[in-house]
């Protein structure tokens, strides 16, 4: 463990907490993409299947369970909660998210470190996570008013893999870790997709004005 990965995990955890806070206190999921949330459920289920095959640490196990549980919980709120589901921007959240799953899986079958079920699933989860934010970013562009909780949630979610990039650099030099191109490039793509968002988020923060993404 290093400070970058710890900060990344905390940023990720905090983003989930903020999202749940928004949904539970305002009883609204306006501006949140259900498609992105569902893709994240698939990401976590595919990546954390190793809960059954390998134990790393108490922290590792707890965090995996927390991410799986919270991601399912969020999807449940948006799909089935009597009040929350009515605030879902169904007409704006139009990304055909199922479409990205087969190509990511196919890529994992072709490009991986090792051809085993667990490894391919892990690899698939990295490729899928790299693009999972797309529905949310598109919805954001169509949303008139981006509330603070939503903006902060997305910022923290984007920051987490950015911090992981620093973690990988650290591990490569300090721990003499092997080159893990698949993780690095997936993480880079994932973070790069936030570039636009980061720019407008920081700009709105500096100018103390409402966050707005140009169409």
């Amino acid at each position: 463990m290093n400070i970058f990965r710890l900060a990344g995990d905390m940023s990720h955890l905090l983003s989930v907490i903020l999202l749940l806070l928004k949904i539970r206190t305002t009883k609204s999921c306006a501006g949140i993409s259900l498609k992105t949330q569902e893709l994240y459920v698939v990401v976590f289920l595919a990546r954390y299947l190793n809960l059954f095959t390998r134990y790393y640490s108490f922290y590792n196990t707890v965090m995996k369970l927390v991410f799986i549980a919270t991601s399912v919980c969020i999807v449940w709120y948006m799909r089935f909660h009597k009040v929350v589901k009515q605030t879902y921007n169904k007409d704006l959240d139009t990304f055909r998210h199922y479409v990205v799953i087969p190509p990511c899986f196919l890529l994992a079958l072709l490009v991986h470190h090792e051809f085993t079920v667990m490894e391919v699933l892990w690899t698939f989860s990295l490729y899928l996570e790299a693009v999972a934010i797309l529905p949310q970013l598109i919805l954001l562009q169509r949303t008139r008013n981006i509330d603070n909780l939503t903006g902060n949630y997305i910022f923290l979610l984007g920051a987490y893999r950015a911090l992981y990039l620093l973690n990988w650099i650290y591990r490569f030099f300090m721990e003499k870790a092997q080159a893990r191109w698949i993780s690095w490039i997936s993480g880079l793509v994932q973070t790069a997709l936030y570039a636009d968002f980061f720019y407008y988020y920081i700009k709105s923060w500096k100018n103390n004005e409402k966050l707005k993404l140009p169409a």
């Binding site: 390998r54 790393y56 965090m63 995996k64 892990w122 992981y164 721990e175 003499k176 870790a177």
Partner: peptide, 10 residues
């Protein structure tokens, strides 16, 4: 657990 294995990450 080898520190070379990034599978210990989330």
């Amino acid at each position: 657990v080898s520190s070379n294995d990034v599978k210990d990450e989330l």
